[in-house]
C-alpha cells in the first residue's frame, strides 16, 4: 500500500461531504474523527431535512452546512455536496456517512490511492482486507448480486459496490454534480462513471456497526432497492449500446 504521508496529501484541497439525516447524536464523534485524521479538509454537512438538531449541531461543530428544505433523498443530498465542491474548486471530494459507520482513519489511505493511481473514484471497501466487519446475512446476498453485476459491466472486480465511503477526483466531481441518480445512487453511479471513461478503483476501508439509530433500509425498501437498481443498470447499459455500435462501424 502507498505511504500515507500527511504533508503530501495536504497539498490537495479536500471537501468531506457528510450526508446526514437525523444524525445530531452521531455528528460530534464523526466530525471529531474527521478533524483528527484529515485536519486540513473542509467538512460539509448536508442536512437532508432532518427533524432533530442536525443542522445546529453541524454549525456548532464549525462545519459548513447545506440544509435541504425537506428530505430529498440521499442521492440529491450528496449531489448538492458535489455541486458545492465544484463551485469551491476542490481537488478532491470525499463522501462520508454522518452515522458513524465509516472510520475516518481509512480516509487518508483512500486519498493517497486516488492521487497515486490518478483515479477518479476510489471506493472504500469493507471486503478487501479482513478487518472484522460482519455484514448481516440478509444483506450480504443482495450486496453480492450488485457487486457481481457491476463488476461485469465495469470490467473489473468491485467487492463493495454499495459502499458510500468514497473519494472523487475533480473529473468525477464535475460528472456527479451534473448527473447523479436520485435514490440508492452508490451502485448505479458506477456504470455511469465507467461509460463516461472515468477510472474506478477500490481501497481497503474500515467500517463500524452503527453507533446510534438504525439503518434507513427496511425490508420493503430492500425489494424496491433491488428491482430499481437492477432496472437502472440495465437501462444504463442499453443507453450505451448504440454508441458502441457506432464506434465499431
Amino acid at each position: 500500500m502507498s505511504s500515507v504521508n500527511e504533508e503530501r496529501l495536504k497539498q490537495y484541497s479536500l471537501l468531506v461531504i457528510v450526508p446526514s439525516y437525523n444524525e445530531a447524536k452521531n455528528l460530534p464523534n464523526t466530525v471529531a474523527d474527521l478533524k483528527k485524521f484529515v485536519p486540513w479538509a473542509e467538512i460539509l454537512v448536508v442536512d437532508d431535512g432532518s427533524t432533530d438538531n442536525t443542522a445546529q449541531t453541524a454549525t456548532l461543530l464549525g462545519c459548513r452546512l447545506l440544509k435541504m428544505p425537506f428530505n430529498i433523498g440521499i442521492g440529491g443530498a450528496v449531489q448538492a455536496g458535489y455541486q458545492y465542491a465544484l463551485a469551491g474548486d476542490y481537488d478532491f471530494a470525499a463522501q462520508f456517512d454522518g452515522d458513524g459507520q465509516h472510520d475516518a482513519q481509512s480516509l487518508p489511505g483512500l486519498l493517497a490511492a486516488a492521487i497515486d493511481n490518478q483515479t477518479d473514484l476510489v471506493i472504500g471497501s469493507r471486503y478487501l482486507e479482513n478487518n472484522g466487519y460482519k455484514t448481516p446475512i440478509t444483506r450480504r446476498l443482495g450486496m453480492r448480486v450488485f457487486s457481481r453485476l457491476v463488476s461485469l459491466i465495469v470490467k473489473q472486480k468491485i467487492s463493495d459496490s454499495t459502499s458510500g465511503f468514497r473519494i472523487l477526483s475533480r473529473r468525477a466531481i464535475v460528472f456527479c454534480a451534473g448527473t447523479y441518480p436520485s435514490d440508492y445512487p452508490e451502485v448505479e453511479i458506477l456504470p455511469l462513471l465507467h461509460f463516461a471513461g472515468l477510472k474506478i478503483m477500490e481501497a481497503p476501508a474500515k467500517m463500524k456497526a452503527r453507533s446510534n439509530g438504525k439503518s434507513s433500509i427496511t425490508w420493503t425498501k430492500a425489494i424496491y432497492y433491488m428491482v430499481k437498481v437492477v432496472l437502472a443498470i440495465t437501462i444504463t447499459v442499453l443507453r450505451e449500446m448504440p454508441v458502441r455500435k457506432r464506434e465499431v462501424v
Binding site: 436520485s182 424496491y224 430499481k228 432496472l231 437502472a232 442499453l238 443507453r239
Partner: peptide, 19 residues
C-alpha cells in the same frame, strides 16, 4: 416504457408500476 426511461423522459422510480 423502456424506451422512455432510456431517453430519460421517465424516471425508473415512476416506471416500476407501469412495467
Amino acid at each position: 416504457i423502456i424506451e422512455l426511461i432510456r431517453r430519460r423522459k421517465l424516471q425508473e422510480r415512476y416506471s416500476l408500476l407501469w412495467l
